[in-house]
């Protein structure tokens, strides 16, 4: 079976400005893929090219096996897109807005009304369904946006900054809704700044910088690449000569002194070995915990590194 998204050498230039350069991206079916990067790094341009809303300068795109430039209608019929700032017709109700989208997709009849009702229910919007959208909160609009995307029963859903401007509670709920899409077997591509959220719901991420996707993989893979060690162990212990003893354990890559203890970067989960070393040295052990690297850290470390290299 073909990948949901496949691009080769995808490039977009606006005059001399390069928005996206030589992008090779593969998103498998059923996968949740996150694209990360600072503003202006080419995330939205990539998304627009996937939808055929912007023509690539060079390279090829296949979305669900089709070229979005040559066969835009077939692609758009099967792909749902939620723009970063989703807008609705304010004077129409939520239900009417959804009905318009359904009609644009050529869907008609009582089955469509039932589907709209069902989606409004899933998004918790039934009470507000017949109120004009101008009375909706940002979170409600965003959920209406997701209903709008799901209406055509897409195979691939593309979400651009889906939690932008939502309060933490609303963002949390919205992420839950996105996670439920994966359970339904949908492929999801989302872009975001909010890294801990992306980490919670994505299978793989791609890091964008200045139009290039520089890193791609699952979070542990990226941690290994960027941070060196994939595991971090926080040791709270006191004693003489502990630092050298810990550094001597095979598999420990780095030891850093911290408030009341040490932070180790290791290749594997070395907690038993660390405990043994502390005890052997006659140190007093208060705590030992394994810390998974967060995407936040990877992201920060990566951009610090490349910025330092550039400077």
């Amino acid at each position: 079976m073909m990948a949901a998204i496949e691009t080769q050498g995808l490039t977009k230039r606006y005059g001399r400005l390069v928005a996206v350069e030589d992008l090779d991206l593969v998103v498998e079916r059923g996968e949740v893929f996150g694209i990360l990067g600072p503003n202006g790094s080419g995330k939205t341009t990539t998304i627009l090219m996937l939808l055929g809303l912007t023509e690539p300068t060079a390279g090829t795109v296949r979305v669900l096996g089709r070229d979005p430039v040559r066969e835009p209608l077939k692609v758009k019929r099967r792909v749902g897109y939620l723009p970063d700032t989703v807008g609705f017709y304010d004077e129409l109700s939520g239900r009417e807005n959804l009905r318009y989208t359904a009609q644009l997709n050529g869907m008609r009849g009582p089955a469509v009304e039932a589907r709209i009702e069902e989606l409004l229910g899933q998004m918790g919007l039934l009470d507000a369904a017949d109120r004009p959208v101008r009375t909706y909160s940002r979170g409600m609009k965003q959920r209406l946006g997701l209903a709008d995307v799901l209406l055509k029963e897409p195979e691939l859903v593309i979400l651009d900054e889906p939690t932008l401007g939502l309060d933490p509670q609303a963002a949390h709920e919205f992420l839950g809704l996105i996670r439920s899409l994966k359970e339904r077997g949908l492929t999801v591509l989302l872009s975001s700044h909010l890294l801990h959220q992306v980490q919670a719901i994505t299978d793989r991420v791609g890091l964008f910088r200045k139009g290039r996707m520089e890193l791609v993989g699952s979070v542990p893979e990226l941690a290994k690449k960027v941070l060196g060690g994939a595991y971090r162990i926080r040791v709270r212990a006191e004693g003489e000569g502990l630092e050298s003893a810990l550094a001597a354990i095979p598999g420990v890559l780095r030891v850093r002194r911290e408030n009341g203890g040490f932070l180790l970067e290791t290749e594997r989960d070395l907690r038993p070995d660390v405990a043994r070393a502390v005890v052997r040295e006659g140190g007093r052990l208060f705590g030992l915990e394994l810390e998974e690297p967060s995407l936040d850290e990877i992201y920060r470390a990566y951009f610090e590194e490349v910025n330092r290299d550039a400077a």
Binding site: P72, L73, K74, R77, Y81, G87, L104, G106
Partner: peptide
């Protein structure tokens, strides 16, 4: 301005 253009054009119409 209402940000509806992207959403409408991502539907299967030209």
């Amino acid at each position: 301005q209402r940000r509806t253009l992207g959403r409408v054009l991502s539907q299967p119409i030209y």
